[in-house]
């Protein structure tokens, strides 16, 4: 009987829980950013491409959502939807959506005035074709960088929600809920907090490193 990372207050193996907790955290990161992308990008493209009243309306709603801090909005939504990992993912996804709406809108407005868009229009391409074939590939780098950095934020948000009891429900493991259980035993059983904390730290650091690297690599103004 060797428990490499020790055991918790109910005698469960911490290493096994950290390993299984990776599922909850990574799934929450990927799925919530997937929700934010699939909702935010089409709305942002519509807003940036159409302009006028539609743009004004979408932009004001986006501004209103961005006025609430990301984590507060996610906690409020998760509390409203009810505590479960799926609802936490939806709540985090909705909270991250306005960032993608605004980013997409700005990028589309930049690209829209390029000569090749005029060229596409002059040969009779439909609006849908211009948006999907000519604009979308050109705004991809910015979206990719933002998505990578958002995964890191979403993983922290999932851990926060689970810490508060709004994410993964016991007895199923999640790094956030493990930290919550560990806080009562910090002085007597600190290993209970160290390992899930280290796991969150490493994953979030990795996504931020990758996001920063992608941003530098995809920046057309940066020559290195």
């Amino acid at each position: 009987m060797t428990h490499w990372f020790g055991t918790d207050d109910l005698g469960r193996d911490v290493l096994s829980r950290v390993i299984f907790g990776a599922r909850a955290s990574l799934a929450a990161g990927a799925i919530s950013v997937g929700i934010a992308l699939s909702v935010g990008v089409p709305i942002g493209m519509l807003s940036g491409y159409r302009g006028g009243f539609v743009d004004a309306l979408i932009s004001r709603i986006t501004d209103a959502m961005l006025a609430c801090p990301f984590l507060i909005l996610a906690i409020a939504l998760a509390a409203f939807l009810g505590p479960s990992l799926g609802n936490a993912m939806i709540a985090i996804g909705i909270s991250a959506t306005p960032i993608f709406v605004r980013l997409t809108r700005g990028e589309v407005m930049n690209v829209r005035s390029e000569d090749y868009i005029d060229a596409a229009r002059s040969v009779g391409d439909s609006n849908l074709r211009i948006a999907l074939v000519h604009i979308l590939p050109n705004i991809m780098p910015a979206l990719l960088v933002q998505a990578t950095l958002s995964v890191a934020a979403a993983i922290i948000a999932e851990a926060s929600l689970s810490f508060l009891g709004l994410g993964q429900q016991p007895p199923f493991p999640s790094w956030g809920s493990m930290l919550n259980a560990a806080q009562r035993f910090l002085t007597s059983a600190s290993w209970m907090a160290i390992w899930p904390g280290l796991a969150i730290f490493l994953v979030v650091l990795s996504f931020n490193l990758l996001g920063d690297g992608l941003r530098d690599a995809l920046d057309p103004q940066n020559d290195k």
Binding site: G11, R12, R17
Partner: peptide, 13 residues
């Protein structure tokens, strides 16, 4: 190495 939700009263903390 172990079931993540199996409890053991002899192995508490």
């Amino acid at each position: 190495p172990y079931d993540p939700i199996a409890t053991s009263w002899t192995m508490v903390r």
